[in-house]
Design a protein around this nucleic acid. Structure first.
Lengths: 312, 312
DNA sequence: TATCATTGGACCAACCTTTGACAAATCGCG
DNA sequence: CGCGATTTGTCAAAGGTTGGTCCAATGATA
């Protein structure tokens, strides 16, 4: 009657028996739905009484409707949740807006919950500019996973799971920011002994978001392969990544080989092992990228790219 | 009136009894049709309940219609399948509709043209059902690239380029076909020494397109990690891939370790090295998947998934 | 005090699963 | 026409899953 219409105008606060009456769903069933499917999860008073809002009631009504449409209660709950939840979430305080996002991703990893992990990663990917997300969320999550792995808090299985999921998201993000048309091209490759693909992928997202067309050769690219790629593609820049430092003599050898392969295209080297390589790299005209600050890196890259024109 | 509007809003997820009511076909008959003609093959929940989609129901209705038109059920099923499946049907010859697609991808690789390669791969990804594309285009392109690499016709650089691009497309396709809801789960992992990720990815697309939720642990998953993952996730099936055959004693060791890790969950092993492993695998209750015919594989997988309860 | 809430577990009917079987209907063919 | 062979709808048994409901002990509200 009219009382319900009026009640729906203000923010409703109904107790369970009232809700049962309004929706036709017995109170015991409401509790069971909450326990089993989380639909809905009403607020509580200080003494733990349930307090249903109008949104909660709408959700219940939707579930009832779906059930009448032939869905099993569990499915109906899932569908109704999916319909109602995707309301925009609030971006938070200025300090570190991505901290909660990282935290929930890490929680999903520790809980070994692939479904939740993918959901959180999707949420993260849509939560800001791809380069920022790659840098401030994914990269830092990966660092944290690495640390926790060292201390035994994260297992090999969890690390594999996280790697697969984050690798997929990173690749998707790269294709999303990859510029159209004939942008300047940057060629990315991992050192010959390199196993870690993530530094390369994160770098790729940055470069692409700065308007460079990224061509990935991936990890373990030998110098000869890089030489051919440089010759064929005439990139404006070459990016190398080296995470595990080779022994000194091998390092010099490798850097020389890569420098020869690259010729006179500007090149940068990043990754954890750069300090070992620094001398050799700058000796051959390469630039070390140690600063993980994207801003500094960007101007550096801009300068380098415009220094030379790809001929032909 | 609202009920039809609702039904068209969500993608239907009906249990068998509801479907029987909606179509007038008894549940037992629906199961028989599925068993005998594969029409339809609904998705499954993690507890192996059938979950029919609206498309499934349309298929059933079509079969009923044809039966009423005088066709024998087996014939009706065949016709209805043919009508429904190849929706974006290419009017091409029976031979190999994907040959030109493969050819243009291979040309892009040989021309070392990343842009064109990505364009061709996008075109391929949209040219048919993901599982078919993964199988008949991407897998075969990768095989061909491997062969051409052996004969020197494709260089390491080209191979790297192709791997990166195809890997990205495969991952994207997987996320596109990954089922929602609580489907039965399959855990995929590469052998400890495994380097090749593509067999796993192609298998993943197949399994996902059959309604299984794929969780990728990726290549080089050690037995201990797999053990933890199995314990945590309780998958309905575990898939392993081994492309490079280890030495016999190591092979036996490895297979034993994996079998122990998997426990009593059904498991399959695929990849080029299966012949070496076959004895050990079947000795430990695993199944070898040698036949790259997805049809045979599918029924095999279906049987294995439902053979044992996913409990504890 | 009488009424309503809370939790967690437990119950049980209804539903689902597979396997195997079986009889009626239909078909091919001598 | 009649006789095997195949097709096809239906069912039963044995066992797992789902989901509405109830209970007991306890606390809050009026």
């Amino acid at each position: 009657m009219t009382s319900t219409a009026i009640a729906s105008l203000h923010r409703g606060k109904y107790r369970i028996h009232t809700v049962a009456e309004m929706t036709g769903v017995p109170a015991a069933t409401l509790r069971a739905w909450e326990r089993r499917y989380g639909v809905p999860v009403p607020a509580r008073t200080s003494s733990a009484y349930r307090v249903y809002s109008d949104a909660d009631i709408a959700l219940i009504r939707r579930v009832v409707e779906l059930c009448e449409g032939g869905l099993a209660p569990s499915e109906a709950a899932r569908v109704a949740l999916e319909e109602h939840v995707p309301q925009a979430h609030t971006p938070v305080e200025p300090g570190d807006p991505y901290a909660p996002l990282r935290e929930s991703i890490l929680q999903a990893i520790e809980a070994f919950d692939p479904r939740r992990l993918e959901r959180e990663l999707d949420r993260a990917a849509a939560s800001g500019p791809p380069a920022t997300v790659a840098e401030d969320v994914l990269r830092r999550v990966l660092l944290e996973v690495g640390e926790r792995w060292h201390t035994g808090r994260v297992t090999v299985a969890q690390e594999h799971l996280a790697s697969e999921a984050i690798g997929t998201v990173l690749r998707r993000m790269l294709t999303q920011v990859q510029p159209e048309g004939d942008a300047r091209m940057v060629l990315l490759a991992g050192f010959a002994d390199e196993e870690h693909e993530f530094p390369l992928q994160v770098l790729a997202v940055h470069l692409a978001s700065w308007g460079l067309r990224v061509v990935q050769l991936g990890v373990r690219t030998p110098p000869a392969a890089l030489r051919q790629a440089v010759a064929e593609l005439q990139p404006a820049l070459v990016g190398l990544s080296c995470t595990i430092a080779p022994a000194a003599h091998r390092a010099r050898e490798l850097v020389d080989a890569y420098a020869d392969a690259i010729g006179d295209v500007p090149w940068i080297v990043g990754g954890a092992a750069t300090s070992t390589l620094a001398r050799f790299v700058s000796g051959r005209g390469g630039q070390i990228v140690e600063d993980p600050q994207p801003r500094a890196l960007r101007s550096q890259v801009e300068r380098m790219c415009s220094r030379r024109k790809p001929r032909r």
